[in-house]
């Protein structure tokens, strides 16, 4: 090697430069995808958010921050924010704990475990629209004794006719039902992330705890729960982002109703961008939501990192 350098055929500098070129060349496809499918749309959205573009016209006017001001001054839009947060909090709570307990069950060794893991993961592969369509039939209200959804039919069969109702049409139950349906879809992913965290916990810790007299639930809390904090962080961030971005499943289940009980902010974005031909406003709304997600994720990330560090120390 030294001889080659000495002959000037291959110098460390030339080799390094060539490596860099190769690295850049290999980066080009990914970079192109990033620019074309992410950077360009995002920068275009930012640009449109300062205009009154209606989505049709070939021209638009620069209107500074008018769209951003409208977001905070329009009560129809602003009302969707608490609903969105409510949905996000419910969704995160259900899935954080639900996913954890499912992962605990799947972490046990049994010959059915692979099948069960697959079963929990399959809903994630189904389109949100299909989920909405199927579950709307499952939750269908009682039109008469021959015509009702599966849930109401089951309640009738077990003699609980008094509990029958219109789950998606009731202000008090609609959001809960929407969250539970979303949880059915996301439970697989959440539990798989937990499961990955659980499987790297050394068995010795459990054995030691058992010798010390710790029961199952004490082991779960003091070992499993605390050792999967990195998985918890990932899950919480993913759940938060997914919750705040939710649209198609909720739209198909309730169309934001009854009233505005399940109307999340992305429905308003679509409503203004598509139905009201205010693409500029729609873009401004999307950007505000994205910034909101960014801030929340940053805060949660910092808090979780601190917790992770505390546990490690």
């Amino acid at each position: 090697m030294k001889r080659l350098y000495a002959r000037g055929k291959l110098s460390p500098n030339r080799d390094g430069a060539r490596d860099k070129i190769i690295q850049i060349v290999f980066l080009i496809p990914a970079l192109t995808i990033f620019i074309v499918f992410f950077l360009y749309p995002v920068s275009t959205s930012v640009m449109y958010s300062f205009t009154d573009w209606n989505g049709i016209s070939r021209e638009s006017n620069f209107i500074w921050f008018d769209n951003y001001i409208e977001f905070f001054s329009n009560s129809t839009i602003f009302r969707t924010l608490p609903t969105t947060l409510y949905y996000a909090v419910l969704n995160m709570t259900v899935l954080t704990f639900g996913g954890f307990f499912v992962a605990l069950a799947l972490n046990r060794r049994s010959r059915f475990t692979p099948v069960l893991r697959l079963t929990f993961f399959i809903p994630m592969l189904v389109s949100g629209l299909i989920v909405g369509f199927v579950f709307r039939e499952i939750y269908a209200p009682v039109l008469n004794e021959d015509n009702m959804g599966i849930i109401n039919r089951l309640l009738t069969m077990v003699g609980l006719s008094g509990l029958r109702g219109n789950l998606l049409g009731n202000v008090n139950t609609a959001m809960i039902v929407v969250v539970l349906t979303g949880a059915w879809v996301q439970l697989g992913t959440t539990s798989m992330i937990y499961l990955a965290g659980m499987q790297i916990i050394p068995r010795e810790l459990y054995e030691t705890a058992e010798i010390d007299g710790a029961g199952y639930w004490r082991q779960v809390y003091h070992i499993t729960w605390k050792m999967i904090v990195p998985s918890l962080s990932i899950n919480m961030i993913l759940l938060l982002v997914n919750s705040l971005k939710s649209y198609e499943m909720i739209f198909y289940l309730t169309q934001g109703g009854p009233g505005t009980a399940t109307k999340v902010v992305n429905m308003s974005v679509m409503e203004f961008s598509v139905s009201a031909y205010k693409v500029g406003l729609g873009c401004a709304m999307s950007i505000i939501v994205a910034l909101f997600i960014f801030v929340l994720v940053t805060v949660i990330n910092v808090l979780l990192r601190r917790r992770e560090r505390g546990i490690r120390e």
């Binding site: 709307r136 209200p141 039109l143 008469n144 219109n166 049409g169 109703g257």
Partner: peptide
């Protein structure tokens, strides 16, 4: 109970 519902036309039409 079914008034603010999202059931589709087909279900009501069957009625």
């Amino acid at each position: 109970d079914t008034a603010p519902s999202t059931t589709r036309m087909g279900r009501e039409l069957m009625e």
